[in-house]
Nucleic acid binder design. Structure first.
Lengths: 213, 213
DNA sequence: TAAAGAACGGAATGGTCCGTTCCGTTTGAA
DNA sequence: TTCAAACGGAACGGACCATTCCGTTCTTTA
């Protein structure tokens, strides 16, 4: 029972603990099923729905919080990759693996259609995109990536990986690693590469996914 | 069953025409959104819901019909690939491209969780799997595929491709072609291939997706 | 020890959505 | 003119779900 809330006790401590428990439960539940009911989150957290509404004005606010949370994670991963000064390919591959492992895609784009975004969310998303672009461009400039690959192809790769789901969370993670390895082989510059057909997604196409206010 | 309504007239002809229109509408609607309401299908078909219930006892029967339809398409593609006697790699790649283009995956596995399957459906699925295995194995035996690839990896590839969705149907098809080309590069035997981590999906894992009776 | 306050659990509420049924209407055939 | 097949879509009833409300439990404090 004694977690970070060491100083507090009783009801106060329970509340502090619940803050985290609820957010974790919400992440797990909505990652699996973006349309899940609030009560599913409460149940998962082992808490009544009332405890949830004490913290968030409504479902949308919870969703927005979750999305911002996901964007922060994404940004942290991208910043780490940018800061890395070793092999640009390894930095890129490590970044992609990190995003896959923390399933941050489900937390951001996948949720984007289910609430009306705020200005802050838009800024976070723009920042995240800019950082990921830098990681991509550095690998591209180093000649590590196949030449017909565009930065906007990367989110689509995340999309494909996030679609993999079989069995429990652990099995899913293992399988995602498997197919990510496959995709990374294809992303890397190599002699047998055929030319990719059709144009990559444009930024405007991605923008259309965020639900308008 | 006479499909050409040429000989028929009036109400009879309208009914015959509607048979096809309704099935097409249902395919389009449920491919986009497996949980769509019946009324969406009726609207798409330009028909009242009554016309729908005259033909199908309920939503489940419509879904099962659609799924069987998809399996038949899949089987036809696989049979064509098996019959082909040219380059095993080309037969395999052509098959995969065919499945991608007709989005048959959305019609089968994606729908599988939304109704209770019949024995006929199970048989069709088994037959489809057996045929696809033959296409895969022939390419594998010819050394065209990377050695660490398993037949059960292929359905997962379809899954990833089916997850790609952006803009209208045409744009989506183009993008799927793009990422399929990427994946095919990776599937093909090539020197730089890293070893795929983790075991491929087992047949039992796939079986768990069909909703129990 | 008692009363107030904080947080809780979960039942009750009100609304939306959707599968299915029903019925009056249209249309062609007899 | 009458009958029956087929239609469109309103109406019905049930399921689901976000949100509110209230009685209960636990702490603190006077």
């Amino acid at each position: 029972m004694e977690t970070r809330a060491g100083r507090l006790s009783g009801r106060r401590a329970e509340a502090a603990r619940n803050d985290g428990v609820i957010l974790d439960a919400a992440r797990e539940v909505f990652m699996r099923e973006p349309g899940a009911p609030i009560s599913a989150v409460a149940e998962r957290a082992g808490v009544g729905v009332g405890a949830l509404y004490r913290r968030y004005a409504g479902k949308e606010e919870l969703l927005r919080t979750l999305c911002a949370d996901g964007l922060h994670r994404f940004i942290a991963l991208a910043e780490a990759a940018v800061a890395e000064d070793g092999d640009p390919w390894e930095a890129f591959a490590g970044f992609v693996r990190g995003v896959t492992d923390s399933d941050v895609h489900s937390l951001t784009v996948r949720l984007a259609g289910t609430f009306t975004p705020t200005a802050e969310l838009h800024e976070l998303a723009a920042h995240a995109t800019a950082l990921a672009d830098r990681v991509f461009r550095r690998a591209k400039a180093a000649g590590a990536l196949r030449p017909d690959l565009h930065a906007n192809d990367i989110p689509m790769i995340f999309e494909q990986i996030a679609a993999i789901r079989l069995g429990d969370a652990e099995r899913t993670a293992t399988l995602r690693r498997r197919y990510l390895a496959l995709l990374l082989d294809a992303l890397r510059a190599h002699p047998g590469a055929t030319r990719l057909p059709g144009p990559p997604p444009s930024s405007e196409e991605f923008g259309g996914r965020w639900r308008p206010a």
